[in-house]
């Protein structure tokens, strides 16, 4: 199917990388973090890029998933899988009950409300110390195991998290190129016209908010088991902003753009370490110039450039 052409490339790259570079730090360690970030960016992009509903609190749902897994497995001795499921249910309930009133807001007001939501979740994680371990975090989280196959090496974590990423991307691409996805994009284009075409904008907004939150929660659970340790810092307001940056950097309303944004924002700091004190400065300068020269985002911008070059080539060929 045509809308999955890029997806097969992604699958090929994901398979080939660890085969060509086994035990490479950038593939099996940084690569796993990038894949985890990509899951989050793709889910946020569904909400922000496609449906046009900004969220500055996405890290909150990531945190709910992570802490549900961490607390239930360490303090209550649950098996990781039901703990993960519990995290998803909890996230779903929170996102549904808060999403309905919050999503009545638009633009800056929606940004403010989601910002507040993310901060509240973060404060709860810090303040309920007896449960969450407070600012010190919670360690000793057991690893996942699938029918006796324990996920206990970098390469195995790569397999698990990249597989989840590919599954999420496949689902999201299918949604975008179907009736429900068109409803999301219509919502972004014109709410009143979407309503007149029979789209219930209220339930559609709540639905995509819950879906994005669920994907983030799943990523959170995986993160907790992979790191074996969680602390509130990983789910702060700053991380929410970083996720928004990934989406905008790659290009809004492009799933591949979100993945690209996640990869760049994960790798760039790693590569800039050589500049030591100037690392953050150069990082900021790169982000700024990317947005100045490709304001539609890296992936979307390059796509358009490529298309323009291609049409000019064909025109010249015809002449």
């Amino acid at each position: 199917m045509s809308h999955l052409r890029g997806f097969y490339l992604l699958v090929a790259a994901a398979l080939l990388l660890p085969l060509i570079f086994p035990d490479n730090y950038y593939v099996t360690v940084v690569g796993v973090t990038a894949a985890l970030h990509a899951i989050l960016a793709v889910s946020l992009n569904l909400l922000m890029g496609y449906a046009g509903q900004i969220s500055l609190g996405h890290a909150g749902f990531f945190g709910i998933g992570a802490y549900a897994s961490a607390i239930l497995t360490t303090r209550y001795g649950w098996n990781p899988w039901p703990a993960m499921l519990f995290g998803l249910v909890l996230t779903g309930v929170v996102a549904f009950t808060l999403g309905r009133p919050i999503l009545r807001l638009k633009g800056h007001y929606l940004a403010m409300a989601t910002l507040g939501l993310g901060i509240i979740i973060n404060i709860l994680l810090v303040q309920t110390g007896s449960l969450t371990g407070g600012p010190d975090g919670l360690g000793g989280i057991p690893t996942l195991s699938l029918f006796g196959w324990a996920v206990d090496s970098d390469l195995r974590w790569y397999t698990v998290i990249v597989s989840v990423l590919l599954a999420v991307v496949w689902l999201v691409l299918n949604i975008i190129n179907s009736r429900s996805g068109r409803a999301l994009r219509a919502l972004h284009g014109s709410e009143v016209a979407a309503e007149m075409m029979g789209i219930n904008t209220t339930t559609t907004k709540t639905g995509v908010f819950v879906l994005a939150a669920l994907i983030a929660s799943l990523a959170g659970s995986l993160f907790a088991h992979q790191q074996a340790f969680v602390s509130p810092d990983s789910f702060s307001f700053f991380f929410s902003i970083e996720l928004v940056t990934m989406v905008v950097l790659g290009g809004m309303a492009s799933t591949y753009g979100a993945i690209m944004g996640a990869i760049i924002l994960t790798f760039l700091p790693e590569l800039l370490v050589v500049f030591e004190d100037f690392e953050v400065l150069i990082f900021g300068a790169i982000l700024m110039s990317m947005m100045i020269f490709l304001p539609q985002g890296l992936f979307v911008g390059m796509q358009k450039l490529w298309r323009r070059v291609a049409t000019e080539e064909s025109r010249r060929g015809a002449a």
């Binding site: 299918n174 009736r179 068109r182 979407a194 789209i199």
Partner: peptide
């Protein structure tokens, strides 16, 4: 195609799984 919204019924999960 958005205009066809009411003439089709597919829910999000069936869309997601194609």
């Amino acid at each position: 195609k958005v205009g066809c919204h009411l003439r089709t019924r597919g829910r999000i999960w069936s869309n997601a799984l194609r």
